[in-house]
Amino acid sequence: MVDSNLLLAGHVLIILSGIFIAFSNNFLSTQRERLLAGLSLVLLGGFTVSTHTWWFHNKYHELGGNIGCSAFGSFSCGDVLANSDWNTVPVLGLPWGLMGMFAFALLGFLALSVRKDHNAKWVKTYLDIGYVASGFGILIALYLLYVEIIPLEMTFCQYCSVAHLADIVAFVMFMKLRKLQGTDQWDLVASQAAKDVKAKDIKRSQRKKNSGFVKPTTRDEEE
């Protein structure tokens, strides 16, 4: 059986790959493409690690006892994920891992949609939703951190921490995309095409002026 912390390293690697692509100039041709590609990987890593926490939660409730979630130092995901009092969403009663899956799936849909059609009318709305939703996720992460520090007495879940990291990184990327959208850097090809058209119009107007072109006047203007 593969050690759970090796599997955790796989989730972390996906997220780090997304960060590297998003903030490196060695991949893709534009900042928009790099941010969206990196964001997609970060959200994928957040989704997979959330799925893993949900799996641990279900495994404990089916089998009880050791759920194969390795512990080291203050990190013991088994003690956190097996705790029914704190590993469920208040009121809804759903495991936090399942909620994380839904959240990252939603954010992934938004990111992939924008990547597919970056000039659509709804792009700004999608980026705003992603920004607000991931920001709300940070508030949830702070609440869960409080739970780990106070009620659970400094017992931390390494899988949960990685999911929180993915959400924080996604928040930063959505923020950067919102600032980029609407500027010339969002679509360099379209921006350059618009500049070329404007330059041609200016040249055409200048040629008409230099050739003695006189704008026709209406009868009202003559009177």
Score class of each variant (00 low, 15 high):
I19H: 07
F72T: 12
L41N: 07
C69N: 13
L188W: 03
F75L: 11
W55P: 01
V49A: 01
F72N: 12
V172R: 09
I150A: 13
G137R: 02
L139N: 07
I14Q: 00
K121A: 14
D117N: 14
I14E: 03
T88P: 00
R115M: 13
A105F: 12
V147G: 03
W96Y: 15
S161N: 11
P216M: 03
K208P: 00
G65H: 12
L165T: 05
L44A: 15
I138C: 09
P90L: 03
G10H: 04
V42D: 03
M1P: 13
L44W: 05
V91Q: 06
D196T: 09
Y143A: 12
D3S: 13
G38W: 05
K208T: 00
D85Q: 14
L110K: 04
E153N: 15
K179A: 09
P151C: 01
D220H: 12
L144D: 01
H164D: 13
Y131K: 06
A166N: 09
A199C: 06
L98D: 04
A111I: 09
G130V: 07
P151V: 00
W55T: 08
H118I: 00
I149F: 08
D3Q: 14
A120T: 01
I149C: 00
L180F: 08
A190T: 13
E33P: 00
I168C: 10
L28C: 07
W122V: 10
D187H: 06
N5M: 14
N83H: 07
N5Y: 13
A71F: 02
R115H: 12
L41T: 01
F136H: 04
G97M: 06
G38S: 05
R115S: 14
K198L: 14
A190D: 15
P151L: 03
L35S: 00
L41Y: 07
I149H: 02
Y143R: 11
T53E: 06
H61Y: 15
G65Y: 08
I19Q: 07
L152I: 03
D201S: 10
E33W: 05
R32I: 04
S17F: 11
M154Y: 15
A190K: 14
G18S: 07
S74Y: 04
D117V: 05
S50W: 01
L106T: 12
A37P: 00
A37W: 13
K208H: 02
A193D: 11
N58M: 10
L127N: 04
A105E: 06
D79M: 10
F174K: 09
A133L: 13
E222N: 12
R178D: 05
W122N: 15
K203G: 00
G64I: 11
F102N: 01
E33R: 04
A111M: 08
D85P: 02
K215S: 03
Q31V: 10
I14D: 02
P95S: 06
F109D: 01
L145A: 09
L81V: 15
Y143W: 15
R204A: 14
N66K: 02
C160N: 03
M175F: 15
L144F: 09
A190M: 11
A166H: 09
T51S: 13
A111Q: 01
I149Q: 12
L112I: 07
D167Q: 11
Q31I: 07
A166S: 13
G65M: 12
I138A: 08
L43K: 04
F72Y: 13
N58G: 01
L35K: 01
A170R: 04
K116G: 01
I67P: 11
L44T: 10
